[in-house]
């Protein structure tokens, strides 16, 4: 029990961090103290101070303002990727699970196996390498690797719920397939979907930063956290201004940690069997 109490406190911590992130992302232009792109070569590698809360980077840009605007990019990518892939995944998973037959054989026998057997990040890297980099292409690539997890989850849920008595009853009363699917089956599958979405946010934020770090995401002048870390890891920067690396690093780690805490907390909350462990 002590364990579950501890975990739920972590989930609350996660919620607080995410709420803070959302506020920062929405009000970024008012929170940022400087112009994100403005370089100032007479003011490089400044330590954190009252003028520059997180210091300045190799070209004298204000690190605090860039971290603030970075939250926008991360959340934007995360939300779009999670919404698109969960909707697409839910539709495909529900169709496959509900109708079975050849649709299910193609989706769960072939597509799931292919995606499972393929390292997601590598597929995203390959797609962006061929498509060219940019925010929209990055989001597209992450959606392509992302929907499968939701489809698998929903398919499993539908297979389970389909056999319940109340669904059989609805069918006996003459409800249409669509009505059964949307009114009776899907609401019962929403809980694990929320857990998956929360963990999916963590994954999307991490993937965006990874691809941007590799130079495959948002192109450099934009304040993506991944780009900031890539720019900060040169020997000179590390030697004279490690804070340029540390602040975006903390931002990524906190965000990913927060979504993971929420996902884990929700899973334990929704599945009391796990709570005892």
């Amino acid at each position: 029990m002590a364990d579950s109490f501890y975990m739920s406190r972590l989930a609350i911590f996660g919620l607080v961090v995410v709420a803070l992130m959302v506020v920062v992302a929405i009000f970024a232009p008012w929170i940022a103290t400087h112009d994100v792109g403005a370089t100032d070569l007479s003011n490089i590698y400044r330590e954190p101070s009252a003028a520059h809360w997180f210091g300045t980077d190799a070209t004298g840009r204000d690190v605090f303002s860039r971290v603030v605007f970075g939250a926008r990019i991360s959340l934007q990518v995360g939300i779009v990727v999670v919404v698109v892939s969960s909707v697409v995944g839910t539709i495909i998973g529900a169709l496959a699970g509900y109708y079975g037959g050849w649709i299910d054989r193609v989706v769960s026998g072939y597509v799931f196996n292919v995606f499972l057997a393929f390292p997601g990040l590598l597929l995203a890297i390959a797609l962006v390498a061929f498509l060219g980099s940019g925010l929209n292409k990055l989001i597209l690539a992450l959606c392509i690797i992302g929907w499968v997890g939701y489809a698998r989850l929903i398919r499993g849920q539908v297979l389970k719920v389909r056999e319940y008595d109340f669904v059989q009853a609805a069918r006996a009363l003459g409800a249409s397939d669509l009505r059964i699917l949307f009114v009776h089956i899907l609401p019962n599958a929403v809980q694990p979907l929320i857990v998956q979405a929360s963990l999916g946010m963590a994954g999307a934020v991490l993937s965006e930063a990874s691809l941007s770090f590799l130079g495959l995401g948002v192109p450099p002048p934009a304040p993506s956290w991944g780009v900031m870390i890539d720019e900060a890891r040169g020997f000179n920067t590390l030697m004279s201004a490690p804070h340029v690396l540390i602040f975006p690093g903390i931002a990524i780690a906190l965000t990913v940690l927060a979504f993971n805490f929420i996902g884990d907390g929700l899973r334990e909350y929704l599945d009391p069997r796990q709570r005892k462990r």
Partner: peptide
């Protein structure tokens, strides 16, 4: 001990390589 190692594990999962790596470089190389 258990709680501490669980939190440590979650932190390890959430810290991406490109954050840990440069920090290790900073500490051990620089």
């Amino acid at each position: 001990i258990d709680s501490f190692s669980s939190v440590l594990a979650l932190v390890g999962i959430s810290l991406p390589g490109f954050v840990i790596g440069p920090m290790l470089v900073y500490l051990f190389a620089v």
